[in-house]
Write a protein that binds this DNA or RNA. Sequence first.
DNA 1: AATGAATGAGATTTCATTCAT
DNA 2: AATGAATGAAATCTCATTCAT
Lengths: 209, 209, 209, 209
Amino acid sequence: MKKIYHKETFDNIPEEKRLRLLQASIKVMGQKGFSNAKIEDIAREMGVSYGSIYTYFATKEDLVHTIITMGIEIQRKAFEPLAEYVDTFSHIQSILERSLKIGREQPELICLWHESSLPYNAQFSDHTSELYRQGVLEWKSVLKKGVSRGDIREDIDIDTIAFIMNAIASQLLRYNMSDFQKSKRAVHFSRNLDDPIPDIMENLKKMLA
Amino acid sequence: MKKIYHKETFDNIPEEKRLRLLQASIKVMGQKGFSNAKIEDIAREMGVSYGSIYTYFATKEDLVHTIITMGIEIQRKAFEPLAEYVDTFSHIQSILERSLKIGREQPELICLWHESSLPYNAQFSDHTSELYRQGVLEWKSVLKKGVSRGDIREDIDIDTIAFIMNAIASQLLRYNMSDFQKSKRAVHFSRNLDDPIPDIMENLKKMLA
Amino acid sequence: MKKIYHKETFDNIPEEKRLRLLQASIKVMGQKGFSNAKIEDIAREMGVSYGSIYTYFATKEDLVHTIITMGIEIQRKAFEPLAEYVDTFSHIQSILERSLKIGREQPELICLWHESSLPYNAQFSDHTSELYRQGVLEWKSVLKKGVSRGDIREDIDIDTIAFIMNAIASQLLRYNMSDFQKSKRAVHFSRNLDDPIPDIMENLKKMLA
Amino acid sequence: MKKIYHKETFDNIPEEKRLRLLQASIKVMGQKGFSNAKIEDIAREMGVSYGSIYTYFATKEDLVHTIITMGIEIQRKAFEPLAEYVDTFSHIQSILERSLKIGREQPELICLWHESSLPYNAQFSDHTSELYRQGVLEWKSVLKKGVSRGDIREDIDIDTIAFIMNAIASQLLRYNMSDFQKSKRAVHFSRNLDDPIPDIMENLKKMLA
DNA sequence: AATGAATGAGATTTCATTCAT
DNA sequence: AATGAATGAAATCTCATTCAT
């Protein structure tokens, strides 16, 4: 069902090497952008000849497709719905922390997603839809459960709050994407620049409880 | 103080034409991206020969700098702090509506900002910092006034709520950026896909009042 | 009706230069073959940068199409039906001499036609069909008139003799195409290697008159 | 005396397989041309890995040399002087039919010869000289015997008629080489497109007897 | 100042050949 | 001997920039 963007040879190489090559691609593409990243740059980061890239992928575009689709696959577990929490707000906090953490550990991946969401990269952004959907549904589920548990007030609209929570999480994902993003923090916060989550949680509790 | 990225000749052409050329550049660059947009594409959209671009700008990079700095200037008024509102929530709603409107009317401008916020475009993103700062300070000001007026509860942290409001406004800015963004709406909302602001306002009032 | 394989820019350059560029292409392509001839080789022979070739033609393949179609156009007059002859055999001799002459003066052109008649070059050979047709019809016309004049015996089939005459003319066209062709002459003739036409004519007269 | 272009290993493989590999090479090279035929294409048609080709031949060029020399060897018997005919014109007809038949059954072989006769393929064409020579001598022999037998008129020059007969046979060899060649038939003949030999023979008899 | 053809550095891609297994 | 992944020289083609008019 899912379209394959790599040649068979890429399946034949050892799992360990395959993941390493993908991570190297993600790193270079994320740091330089799809157009600016040169095949030779990527090959050097991969530690292979650039000819090898063409034994794995027919074109550069196919490589981008692959790192997005397979990159998503690799990272999907990072976004898997978190295990049950007794306390709704602990659960919410975990999700926000997860976003901040992924963005801090894999800034290149965030760059890829950010770039692929531009309209002229529509062919790549399709792959991330499912992951996005999963994230939104998780928010709705957590909020709904919070209401039924009595942790969250009854008079709010879950869809709308999920939209807001998603907006916050998106900001946190990008929180470490670039120096530009980092510089923005000081406009927002005079303290706790590195971790705004405690403050966010404290205020969310007041508003949502 | 501010660095100039265009040649003198660009100042000599009539205001009307100059703005038209900039809008054409913004359109093409926004639709195709900095790297993919070719000088020839831009010249064609501008309605001039591509030799002319080099009589106005020394390099393609200078053109990008210019459309971002001057584009910002052109659009700055769109982001100028709104005139005083008697009601705090009317003011908040106006700001959100402004974001949605700009994103709807000038999707290419949003694309430019989106692209320029990527780390490898740091040289361009500097120009938008001031505009970003202005937006955040506006939120803080509105919220602070709302608290002092008694429209908004006293126990929230203004910095943090400004961060959240900014996250929401950012989402609304991108709400019409690409088909991908548009497709996301349906994951969030089952109704009112085109204008989520009434729902957002209703819920914000409950939480912030 | 006829498909154009060059960009407008190629029409804009002076006639003299355009023909020179085509002749240079024909020379290199004829000498090295379509695949072996490098764009850089051609550019060097043309006396322009290889970038220029791409301002005239979108692809190398388009260049080949162009030299074949326009090369044909240029040479068509060389194959134009010869002016009326009082004597049929003088006419026949002129046609054969014309073939030998063209092949001697433009061996590269003959190479192009030879190469383009290979099955994997079918896309190029289409262009020469009309010229071929013209040549065959000329033979039929000359032979028919020869019969009606009483120069040529009545009991032969014109179509078949035209086929034979065409076969002879084809051999003469290739007579100077390559050293290999030249070396073949000695297998055929012990004397008059350079110009077999007198002998051919003498024998044709005996057989056809 | 004759230069060998293959490695010893190629002699070690069974006759049957060796011929199969050669036929596969001839097929691919004939269909695509020396330059366009990729080692990988040939290997796939051969049914071996493309690494194997390099255990048999040092270079692609050696492979071309080999298929031409050995291909000639394989096909030489097809061109071997035909057994004695009582009737000269029967003999002539057999030779023409042999040409038509070989071209119909082995169009790729004809393509190889056609391509190898181009000047930039001189290194390959040398191999076919002997075969060509053999063909011409056969014509001379048949014609000479025809004259001495009284089947053919005495007043013609045997060398010249052999040249003409060779030209006809060459056309027949290529008669099925490509769709282009096939399309040419209709220009020549309104009937008997597939087999022009009866008509040719009938007219030859009139002219030569 | 305006034009658009000309240039060539640099990118992607191909593919004959090598080499580890 | 056989395999097919790995290599990199060399090809095609792109496009920012220059330059003659």
